[in-house]
Amino acid sequence: MHPAFSVIFLTTLIGVGQGLFIALNIGQVFDLARDDINLGHGFYAWGGFLVLSFLALGLIASVFHLGHPERAWRAVTQWRTSWLSREVIVLPLFMLIVFAYMLGHFNGMDAEQSLTLGLVGIIVCFTLFVCTGMIYACLRFLREWATPLTVVNFILFGSASGFIFAAAYAGWAGQPELLELFGEIGAWLTLGALVSRGWTLKRNAELRARPKTTTQTATGIHHPEVRQTSMGLMGGSYNTREFFHGMKALAVRRIKGFFLVMVFPVTLALLLAGTALDSAFLVSLAFLAQYLGLIAERWYFFAQVNHPQNIYYQQVG
């Protein structure tokens, strides 16, 4: 598939927002449980604002994916069947909750109210993760995507990046305990993501070896040697642009390498150093490294998909 930058930004940005929101709530639990932590409404209110900002940025990015954003409201109508429609409902809902959360904290709502809102928010947040993941995972024929791992990856990457961001935020906000806490959780989540993404990569590599759909099934010509000699057009078309990344295999491998290095070892190293040294700066760097890596990861997420339609668009002649 051709990676769509609007979607790359949408999914990575809201992922950070979602993770951050979860972190804020975990933070609050700690806030309540431990006497040495006392954050004050400002931390949550501004945290909520940051969550909202990530979600809004993601939303804006996604608008660029639409040909007719003025009709976007229509996208809520098909929630019965379409995960995309569901996402379109859940994302604003989540934003609404975050907005209420932010407003509540600005107005000094009490902990009980905050936790209740937080809990509802987290449920919606996870629903959003599921919707986002399922948009891809539900496409049965895109076998690289059609696995629960897709949803798991979205959850883990979003949470990890959100926690690391939260750690940096806590650091800059002068909360070393939280920096450490979020940092540690972020590290574990990153490790979890490493496992699930690694597993996904392995799974997908094996898929290639056992294609289900072949030139034979696509054409109904059952002969061991069937080759396309012409796709019927020469100057390219939507089908040759949307479903091919147009990069050489080597470039794709380098992007994969880049994301694997950035999202995992580089991030972890910076994160460990940051938490050990209590450096908000290093943790911020860790976040940046992971986020950049995630952009590449998401790019690769698209690029790795070998759409069955490509069987029909192999050769110009």
Binding site: A4, L66, G67, A75, L84, L139, H307, P308, Y312
Partner: peptide, 18 residues
């Protein structure tokens, strides 16, 4: 149609054109 292209991703035959 909002032009999200999602349907074309779902079509295994490459039959849709944007």
């Amino acid at each position: 149609c909002i032009g999200c292209k999602y349907c074309s991703w779902a079509c295994p035959y490459g039959a849709r054109e944007f």
